[in-house]
Design a protein around this nucleic acid. Structure first.
Lengths: 336, 336
DNA sequence: TTGAAAGCGCTAACAT
DNA sequence: ATGTTAGCGCTTTCAA
């Protein structure tokens, strides 16, 4: 049988109220001797407060949720870690929810989190039909958005990734290196960051008066299989190109794989750029030139934003903080 | 203000008990009409049951914990996904805890999980000083072990990975391919699976009467940096070798990276074997020959074992199930 | 400086 | 078929 606050009270010959005060360090007006006694007994009895009972009265769980679309994309574990480390540091726990880019799952998780009475949630970009019918609209707890747009009074902060600028700079870099036929292979079209990344690419082409050919862009999944498949079909169709801007590193890795199989050298034959800068980007062969996102720092910032909002009593609704995370172009061996 | 069971009861002109029964589908003896009425009102009012209140009385949270040592090692997200999918399917939620191989963090998490009154925990291999002082000894809820040993009456199941056999077979394969000077570069020595994997390697050497040279084995971290560093020092010392058995895929990727920088071809100059078969193993260049672990299936099995134990009323203590997960040697391009 | 008591939202005997 | 009621373990006001 678990030992409760009652047991401690009985053993210490004090009331449960006193024990509660000591446990919660609200002990300004508790005598030193009682405090000591209670603390000692609590330790001896291996007392563990029941957080559910506590939350039931305080209406605070000190737990936040993190909703991510794809935990097998290395970008997200890194973000999760940053978020968790910061949350822990600030006295919060975190529940990670992986939606597999599935709206149904996302809905389910949001419901689950609501039932668990979490204090708030960090919502990262995910597939979605339209901003209006975003499931997040149904949240009734504070939200911090990462690379995503939701209209709701519950939104307390927003992390913006300058995806546009990232791929714009990346593409511009390729153009400066004299590439003229540049493919774009991105993730799912309905994800916002996909279109942002695509638009940056388009902008760079336009500025340099380069032909903007529809057949030069392909959209699919943010994984290596898709990169492999997509580039295969360009190869088959004998589309001429000398560089590929990829929606993320996983796609880039798939592209490089296929290119090599075809006997095309990277970067000599074709330059390939990734996006994200996952852990393995510098270890693959050739190491990946990529638009780096500060994944860990993003997680940290998201937690910070959310928890600060949670602890801010004067809940000024309309004025939430927007923080922009900048991308950095890292040139390694897969491009020149 | 959140709507509670009381509100629903009031609106439906019934007692809270009736509402509770309907909500929990314990409605054998509730009239169809009341059931309908209650359900409808609950939906209209957007009623969300407060799980904490429920758990407080049922002593069941329907939540399990998953403790993993390193979420940036792609093996673990895959396992986590399997565990979570299965848990969800069986009506459970899962909280992922990442310990960074840090005993202190592990302790903290176990305490946190206890406070949150989780129903049970899946504990995966981690650094540890000795079996006896394993933090898990302090758990007071059902445990399922993955690749780890703990002595506790709370252990309700165990997943064993045949690490030994995996690296034994891998090494044997290399020997059959006429490799004679084979290095072993493993993870931290105090992790059990490290020594298991090492022992398999040793066994294969012995059986083939090959020299077992201490300086042929190195132990460090399960990441690419370590692989890179370790092989560098072998290269510097001009130790002769034609093959490397690595403790995991990340190490192998670091090793290959360094080898190529040195102008050593893989597999022509040196064959490299990994362990785990992470998602990117088949996408790196050359694709990685590796001892595959069924990461997703392991997660599924762990959840299954744990939840079955949780739901098994006649809690026969001493007789828990042990399930062995087998490894499969996958030969790709990094070896021959 | 301490304690009594109400109540958080819910479930489960037990009545009716 | 439905309702009454006693808690689950805790915090918090208010009184002593």
């Amino acid at each position: 049988m678990k030992v409760t606050i009652k047991d401690i009270a009985r053993l210490a010959n004090v009331s449960v109220a006193t024990v509660s005060k000591v446990i919660n360090k609200k002990d300004k007006d508790i005598s030193d001797s009682t405090r000591q006694k209670v603390l000692e007994i609590a330790k001896n009895e291996n007392y563990i407060p029941n957080l559910m009972a506590r939350s039931l009265v305080t209406k605070k769980t000190n737990t936040i949720g993190l909703i991510i679309p794809d935990i097998s994309n290395p970008f997200f574990p890194e973000l999760a870690r940053g978020a968790e480390d910061k949350a822990n540091e600030l006295g919060y726990n975190m529940i990670i929810c992986n939606t597999d880019n599935d709206i149904k799952k996302e809905k389910k998780y949001i419901k689950m989190l609501a039932e668990k009475m979490i204090d708030g949630v960090i919502l990262t970009a995910s597939l979605k039909a339209s901003a209006e019918e975003d499931v997040a609209t149904n949240c009734s707890f504070p939200i911090v958005l990462v690379d995503r747009d939701v209209n709701s009074p519950y939104v307390k902060g927003k992390l913006i990734v300058n995806d546009f600028r990232g791929s714009y700079l990346a593409t511009k870099y390729l153009i400066e290196k004299n590439h003229r036929k540049i493919l774009f292979i991105g993730g799912p079209k309905i994800i916002k960051n996909t279109s942002n990344r695509f638009n940056g690419y388009v902008q760079a082409l336009k500025e340099n008066a380069l032909e903007l050919n529809d057949s030069y862009a392909d959209f699919g999944e943010y994984n290596s299989e898709f990169g492999y498949k997509s580039i295969s079909s360009y190869l088959e169709k004998k589309v001429p190109f000398t560089a590929v801007v990829c929606g993320n590193d996983l796609i880039a890795i798939g592209v490089i794989k296929r290119l090599k199989e075809q006997g095309v050298k990277v970067p000599e034959g074709v330059a390939v750029l990734g996006f994200d800068d996952i852990y393995l980007a510098r270890y693959v062969e050739p190491s990946l030139s990529t638009v780096a996102l500060p994944s860990y720092a993003m997680g940290v910032a998201a937690s910070e934003l959310l928890i600060r909002a949670l602890e801010n009593k004067n809940n000024c609704n309309e004025n939430y903080e927007i923080r922009e995370m900048n991308t950095v172009l890292k040139i390694r061996e897969s491009s020149w």
